[in-house]
Every structure is written in structure tokens, then in C-alpha cells.
Design a binder for these strands. Structure first.
Lengths: 112, 112
DNA sequence: TTTAATGTTCGATGGTTAGCGAAATATAGA
DNA sequence: TCTATATTTCGCTAACCATCGAACATTAAA
């Protein structure tokens, strides 16, 4: 992976609110059991997406537990998508989103 | 480690030039053999800090191989320090810099 | 078909950042 | 002490970013 790709990924994770959104998706929305390092991160009481395997209504759920406007949250989702960290699709009224495992792998390999 | 610390680290690595500087220090200046993932990153011909274990004159060397003003590079060093990624000290006229292993460890643990 | 809910897009605003050159500071050596 | 070299700080500018509310688009349900 090119250096510029890495900087794009890190830029997406450089905003604390956006990182929080990403962590919620990563940890709770996609059924991935957070490994060490993630468990330590405090998201606060507002953690919301506890449905394992349930990526439905990710957007709404995150809206409900964050103190940001919907438009801002929509923007953050876009940024996470642009960085290749997540993919989102709309099925009817369900906003379905996935973690992009390939990108996660690249991050893991970044410093060995 | 707090979420805000992680976003600060990622912010420091979100600028491509700064990431490049960090990678040079990480890979070449501190005698750390880059693991997989780093080896793949192309820094271009300008890679300069080939002296293993030699962290001396890191600033000057990096200035020589990057197309940025010295003041800008100084600024980037400061940012890397603020994020806790590196520490720098001046010994006489030698600018000595180290990787902060603790922070590296945190990054590695971030996604498991 | 109206209504309610869910997301997106737009334009504005205030704050932050990357970059430069010039001036300042620090150190080593002549 | 003077000079050359190395690094930092300062002041500036242009670009970028986070955020909002309003307006719009889409879909489900009443």
C-alpha cells in the first residue's frame, strides 16, 4: 500500500468524533469482538450498537448516541468510506454498513 | 489509552510529508528493521538516513532529502513530538531523536 | 396520497493546518 | 569575539475541516 493511502486512513481517524464512530462500528455493529486495545477505549455510556451482527440502522443508532447533527454524522460516514475503512449501502430504509477488512489488515501491518 | 490520544497520534500521521518523516526515522534512523508493511512503502530515492543506529543529525538529513523548508520540517518534528511518537534532544550540535516505543506499542494494539 | 422517518446535499462560518521566508537563537570552531 | 552552521520562532497566507441548519430526496406506513 502506498504511503498516501496510509495518510488518508490516518486522516480519517484523526478526528475524535469520527474515530469514535469508527470504533463503534468496528466493535459493536459488525459483530467483531474487540481485541485488546479496543476494550480499553472508553466510549462512555452512550455506546449503543450492541446488536452483534446487526449493522442495521447504524446511522440512526449512532445519531442517537452522539451529540452531533445528522448532517455532520453523514459527513463523517462519507469520510470513513472515502478512506476505505467502511462500506455502506442502503437497503430500503436500512442503512447497512461493513468494516473493510482489507484496510484493517493494512493498518495492522503498518508497524509490523 | 484514551480515545483522544489515539486521534492525536493519527492526526500526526495524517499529513503525508509528516508520515514520510516519521517513517524515515522509524525505519532508518533508529536502527529498527522495518517489519512487513513498512518495507512496502516507497519513500523514493531521497531516502537518506541509512546509518543504522545513527540518529545524529536527523533533522539535517531529513531536510536534505525532502522538498520542504527547514521551518516546515521543524514544525513537523514538533507535531510528531507532541503526539508522543518521537522524542528529540539536542546534544551540542547534534540533533538526536528516538522513537517512543510505548506509543508504537499502543498503535500496534489499537486494532488488536 | 399525505405523513413521518431517514439520509444527503448545500452554503455559511469559525477554526485549524501546511507551508513559506525572515528574523532570532544557539553552538562550535577559527 | 566573530563567523558559519543548525534549529526555532514569528507572522503571514491560502487551503482545508468540522460543524450547523435548511432544504431536498427517498422510503414506509397510515
Amino acid at each position: 500500500m502506498e504511503l498516501s493511502n496510509y495518510s488518508r486512513i490516518f486522516k480519517a481517524l484523526s478526528n475524535e468524533q469520527r474515530l469514535k464512530i469508527f470504533m463503534m462500528i468496528y466493535r459493536d455493529c459488525c459483530g467483531i469482538k474487540g481485541p485488546k486495545g479496543i476494550a480499553e477505549i472508553k466510549l462512555g455510556d452512550e455506546s449503543c450498537c450492541g446488536v452483534k451482527g446487526g449493522i442495521e440502522k447504524a446511522f440512526s443508532k449512532i445519531c442517537d448516541c452522539m451529540d452531533l447533527s445528522r448532517s455532520t454524522i453523514s459527513h463523517h460516514f462519507k469520510e470513513l468510506q472515502n478512506a476505505g475503512l467502511i462500506t455502506c449501502e442502503r437497503e430500503g430504509q436500512t442503512f447497512r454498513c461493513h468494516i473493510n477488512e482489507k484496510t484493517i489488515k493494512s493498518i495492522r501491518e503498518f508497524l509490523g
